[in-house]
């Protein structure tokens, strides 16, 4: 616990690393930081155009909400494998708490995510204005920070775990891409959660073990007013991210002492 609190002392470093992370991503490009907004804008536009052209019957707003949440998750998990291993000289020569690495990686991605949420809100308002889509923004909107915290806890937990794994097992990096592909289809992004509930039967409980299920569902509730299922098991699964955060960080703190030996 002390070691977790100690990290507050390193806020300057975390801020520095987050800024460095963001700055370097767009270094040298003409539009620079604007890309964090332009990217999701064009993504939404392209989905919009092609779903129309191809007449695919997918609810665009709920697809976009799912995809943005998924992107935050994917960015964190794919960045996490290199969060430690990309910094051998820092690991071998400095002594600050290693949790700084996954944490600053997650925070940098969080900032990108928040900016893409602004684009999402703009897009959704335009969409409802011009296409008669009714969005019931209401009480659930005040839950938004809570949902973001939930997902951030989740990616930090997984991020710390996989960052650690890649130090000891270089294969983690390659397993990750396969894992993420399967995970994508196990998460209600291309399809509504209701569909799984109808067809999966008893396996639905198992399906709820995927912590991204409550995350995506809650975002849809917040932005689109699509209510989550009322099963108590669903609310229980909302606690999963915190469990994963605890487990991931505990594992990380146990292993961090020996990172330098492995590099």
């Amino acid at each position: 616990m002390n070691r977790i609190l100690e990290i507050i002392k390193w806020k300057d470093l975390i801020r520095n690393l987050v800024l460095k992370n963001l700055r370097i991503r767009y270094k040298g490009s003409v539009l620079g930081f604007l890309w964090t907004m332009i990217n999701p804008m064009f993504m939404m536009l392209i989905y919009f155009i092609f779903l129309r052209l191809l007449r695919i019957a997918i609810d665009l707003p709920s697809l976009l909400v799912g995809i943005l949440a998924w992107q935050y998750f994917v960015m964190c998990l794919s960045d996490s494998v290199n969060a430690i291993t990309a910094h051998p000289s820092l690991i071998k020569r400095t002594s600050f708490p290693r949790l700084v690495f996954p944490l600053s990686m997650v925070l940098a991605n969080l900032i990108n995510f928040l900016l893409s949420l602004i684009v999402l809100v703009l897009f959704l308002s335009g969409y409802s204005l011009f296409f008669g889509y009714t969005i019931t923004l209401g009480l659930p909107l005040i839950l938004l920070p809570g949902v973001i915290i939930l997902q951030t806890a989740l990616v930090l937990g997984f991020g710390s775990f996989f960052a650690c794994c890649n130090v000891y097992f270089k294969d983690t990096e390659h397993i990750m891409s396969i894992l993420l592909l399967a995970w994508f289809f196990l998460t209600p992004i291309m399809y509504p959660l209701e569909k799984v509930r109808e067809s999966a039967g008893q396996f639905f409980n198992l399906y709820l073990l995927n912590p991204m299920v409550p995350v995506v569902t809650l975002y849809r509730w917040v932005f689109l007013g699509i209510a989550p299922p009322t099963s108590p098991l669903f609310y229980l699964s909302c606690l999963l991210p915190f469990l994963i955060l605890f487990a991931g960080v505990t594992f990380f703190l146990k292993k961090e002492l020996y990172f330098a030996d492995e590099m």
């Binding site: 300057d12 801020r15 690393l17």
Partner: peptide
């Protein structure tokens, strides 16, 4: 500034 932060020195 980055190097200072790495050494844990306040900004």
């Amino acid at each position: 500034f980055l190097n200072g932060a790495i050494m844990g020195i306040p900004r």
